[in-house]
């Protein structure tokens, strides 16, 4: 069985490396984009199974990227997990309304991240918390 592909859109290089190490150890293949523009091209190029999208991006707000991704038919089926260090209030609702499948507040707990990934990628080997 091949690993699921995850595109991570994140402008902080340290956090990108953290994702890479952690997700690789948990058997995910990772691709990266540091801004909104490359997020679109990387998504087209790799056709990931899931996109982790940070809201605070240079060259285009995360919401703009989310909107564009969902507007393209061939990309609109890819589940998007929106992640943000910003205030959850308002942003979470807005992201879910715009079509994101889940929202995660930074900094997250590792088991939270893994359970959401498992849930969205259909590998429910980890206990799934009750979504609120």
């Amino acid at each position: 069985m091949t690993n699921k592909k995850i595109l991570i859109v994140e402008d902080d290089a340290d956090v990108r490396l953290g994702y890479q190490v952690f997700l690789k150890a948990n058997h995910y293949d990772t691709f990266f984009a540091a801004d909104g523009v490359s997020a679109m091209s990387e998504a087209r190029k790799h056709q990931p199974d899931l996109i982790i999208l940070d809201l605070g991006l240079p060259a285009g707000d995360g919401f703009v990227v989310l909107e564009r991704l969902l507007a393209l038919t061939h990309l609109s089926l890819i589940p998007v997990l929106v992640v943000s260090a910003r205030e959850a209030l308002g942003n979470k609702e807005r992201a879910l309304k715009a079509g994101a499948k889940a929202y995660l507040q930074k900094p997250w707990n590792d088991h939270e991240l893994l359970s959401i990934l498992g849930q969205l990628l259909g590998q429910p080997e980890l206990p799934v918390p009750q979504p609120r």
């Binding site: 902080d12 340290d14 956090v15 953290g18 190490v21 952690f22 930074k106 900094p107």
Partner: peptide, 9 residues
């Protein structure tokens, strides 16, 4: 929260 994210990771 951003640096905290990296520390936690």
């Amino acid at each position: 929260r951003s640096p905290l994210t990296a520390i936690k990771q």
